[in-house]
Design a protein around this nucleic acid. Structure first.
Length: 513
DNA sequence: CTCGGAACAT
DNA sequence: ATGTTCCGAG
């Protein structure tokens, strides 16, 4: 089928680092999902080349703006071999992330979305930002500001968390950047955000690590219901602060030039450990070249990180195979000269779906002009050139290097944002990240979550077993953090029916099963 | 623009 | 499970 796209192509034609195909297939067979949209977005955000297309929004942690929707869609379409991709479709996919809580929309701001990093793991970006050495390319998510916030659901009925939270989050909830407060209520049905789901659950597992630091949290937590431990992932220990480059990042392993040297994730040891995840895309040095290099060493790291990710997040169990011991995928698959892709022709069957909606006439409209040669009754296949234009490409690597050299970067002119090194500066107060406590030994920014699924020794204890599971899917869905504080209201509108929303909606329900 | 239901695809 | 493709509604 997707003959034309067999290779994982990089977004911009030659430029970026690429991962071998298998790298994207976190799960070997069944639903190997290749790259996911949010991954892709993050990927773009990491590269300066796309700064004009998509970039972090300064001032809001994790928020980004799609400056050129069409371009982003094009790139995405290319990556997925869906020439017909457009922003409308892409945005639909993005919207599906709302319920998954991977993303949410920044209301009032066009093309602006915000990541909920607590839910993300970068399985495919193990090297990202790990190095404290710095190299944080330009795009690092903005430092959290007062206004930025994620909705971190209360641990209990009343969330001590927010309360105890050092200012940062509390304030935010009130204003939120400004806009959403009013209209959001629109109709957003169920909000019920109060129930927390994974996210809360996730971060709450701070446990051990934080045990010592609990005090810091304000000591408010004493009443944890299910999770015995809750903790606010506060960075208590000065030493563990995030590396200067990323506000959230905590690179527990300071000087470590290498990547993960973590002896497999602590999680494996059942120790509820939280890792911080740093959204800031620090490209690792590895990526400086146009091709991703895979050394056994790195591979190992990569795998480790995968392991960590998988075990610590409930992102998706299938993110990584249960690698017994770690098996290293064949490295043989070096790099494909994908340059060839540039002019390859992609065949894409018309959207087969929707048989009902005959797109008979429409079938042609998509490529009316270009298919003159077609026979009278054109086969239902569209032929398209997969060329487009990828000017960027090569120079990227160079640029990156330069960046590295500069380190701070001062982004070359432009950037609506105030950019500058300040981006990476961390707030005076410890970059508290609710869901990201730091764990000493590991670099992988991870967060422990509940997916007990693959955890070797882990038993699904009722208490720990996913809360998600416990919570009725309905409730769990349609929650948003974004809403105004009050916004959430049980909406009893008819909207509670999910009849058809089916699979997708429930997807949010956790990776279990 | 943005949302989200539906149906369909992988 | 995660999109993709359409589409009506606001």
């Amino acid at each position: 089928m997707k003959a034309g796209c067999s290779i994982v192509e990089k977004p911009e034609g030659g430029g970026g680092y690429q991962f071998p195909d298998w790298a994207y297939k976190t799960e070997s067979s069944p639903g190997s999902r290749q790259i996911q949209l949010w991954h892709f977005i993050l990927e773009l955000l990491q590269k300066e080349e796309f700064r004009h297309v998509i970039a972090w929004q300064q001032g809001e942690y994790g928020e980004f703006v799609i400056k050129d929707p069409d371009e982003v869609a094009r790139l995405w379409g290319r990556r997925k071999c869906k020439p017909q991709m457009n922003y409308d479709k892409l945005s639909r996919a993005l919207r599906y992330y709302y319920n998954k809580r991977i993303l949410h929309k920044t209301k009032g701001k066009r093309f602006t979305y915000k990541f909920n990093f607590s839910k993300l793991v970068m399985p495919n970006y193990p090297f990202i930002n790990i190095r404290s050495s710095g190299v944080v390319p330009q795009s690092a998510p903005p430092v959290p500001t007062a206004s930025s916030r994620f909705h971190f659901p209360p641990l209990d009925a009343h969330s001590p968390t927010s309360d105890m939270q050092p200012g940062r989050f509390s304030a935010s909830s009130l204003t939120t950047s400004g806009q959403e407060s009013l209209s959001d209520g629109t109709d957003r049905k169920a909000e019920l955000s109060e129930l927390e789901d994974g996210s809360a659950a996730d971060w709450r597992r701070g446990v051990d690590l934080m045990s010592s630091r609990n005090a810091v949290g304000g000591g408010g937590m004493g009443h944890q219901k299910r999770k015995p431990d809750i903790m606010l992932p506060l960075f208590t220990r000065p030493g563990m602060y995030p590396d200067p480059h990323s506000p959230f990042a905590v690179s527990p392993v300071p000087g470590r030039g290498g990547v993960l040297n973590v002896p497999i994730s602590p999680a494996l040891s059942l120790t509820p450990t939280l890792f911080s995840y740093s959204p800031s895309p620090g490209l690792s040095p590895f990526t400086s070249s146009s091709c991703f290099s895979f050394n056994p060493e790195e591979m190992k790291h990569y795998l480790h990180s995968q392991a960590c990710s998988v075990f610590n997040y409930h992102l998706s169990p299938r993110t990584f195979p249960r690698y017994p011991g770690l098996m290293v995928p064949p490295l043989q698959c070096k790099m494909h000269p994908e340059e060839s892709a540039q002019f390859s022709i992609k065949l894409q069957p018309p959207p087969a779906g929707r048989r009902n909606r005959e797109r008979v006439e429409s079938s042609e409209e998509s490529a009316p002009v270009s298919a003159p040669t077609a026979a009278p009754v054109p086969p239902r296949i569209k032929v398209e050139l997969a060329s487009e234009k990828d000017p960027e490409s090569l120079r990227q690597s160079v640029r990156e290097k330069e960046e590295l050299a500069q380190e701070e970067g001062t982004v070359p002119g432009r950037t609506t944002e105030e950019g500058k090194g300040t981006i990476f500066a961390r707030p005076a107060t410890p970059p508290v990240w609710p869901s990201v406590p730091s764990s000493a030994p590991s670099e992988e920014p991870l967060e422990v979550t509940e997916d007990g699924e693959d955890r070797p020794g882990r038993e699904p204890s009722a208490s720990e077993k996913k809360e998600d599971a416990v919570m009725p899917p309905k409730l769990r869905l349609k929650r948003r953090w974004n809403d105004g504080p009050e916004a959430r209201e049980l909406s009893k509108n008819g909207k509670f029916l999910w009849n058809g929303s089916g699979p997708r909606g429930l997807a949010a329900a956790a990776a279990d099963a």
